[in-house]
Design a protein around this nucleic acid. Structure first.
Lengths: 91, 91
DNA sequence: TTATTATTTAGATAGTTATCTAATTATCTA
DNA sequence: TAGATAATTAGATAACTATCTAAATAATAA
């Protein structure tokens, strides 16, 4: 996917988006289910989901009226490794 | 130090600051030495160094007219672990 | 078809941030 | 002390972002 690290860090820099990531670790959830745990309006939630999607951190699939969001596990894994590598001190 | 993760991610989200981190992995450098590799004015550099300092990622020590900046290795290590933990999927 | 629910898109706004120029502070040297 | 160099602070500005309300789209149910 070759997502630049800056975009990833920006996506992760918002507290509400961190909570969303945290929620999705337990498994997929509909947008409204996420929203119920976040004290923001649906449009704001939609914006945050969009940022996370564009950073390739999450994906959504529509099922009926709802859209279920889930973590992109492989991307998260990749990012985690990339960050560790970036922060690793060269001796 | 208990630096909130959001602040760390914000600090790391800027390309110029990523370059600074990268440069300092090789060892300490004066502000002007960093600046020569960055195509920004001294005040802008100063701003970025300040952001990184406030995120506890770097420290500066004055030696004569120059201020030498270096990575806070232990903080970087801590942060790296914290990020891995944050991105770790609970089974 | 009409109403209801779920979500997104459009548009506006307030707050934040990256950047610059100009001025200031700190240190060294002649 | 005066001048030069290194870095920061002050102040302005343009771009970006998180948020909201209102409107639009999508899917379901009556």
């Amino acid at each position: 996917m070759a997502m630049p690290l800056a975009k990833t860090f920006s996506a992760l820099a918002d507290p509400n988006r961190q909570i969303i990531i945290d929620l999705l670790k337990r498994g997929e959830q509909s947008a409204s289910a996420i929203g119920r745990q976040l004290d923001i309006t649906p449009p704001t939630l939609s914006h945050h989901l969009d940022v996370l999607k564009r950073a390739d951190l999450i994906s959504g699939r529509r099922q009926g009226q709802q859209i279920f969001y889930s973590l992109n596990f492989s991307t998260v894994q990749e990012i985690s490794e990339k960050i560790v590598k970036f922060l690793k001190i060269k001796k």
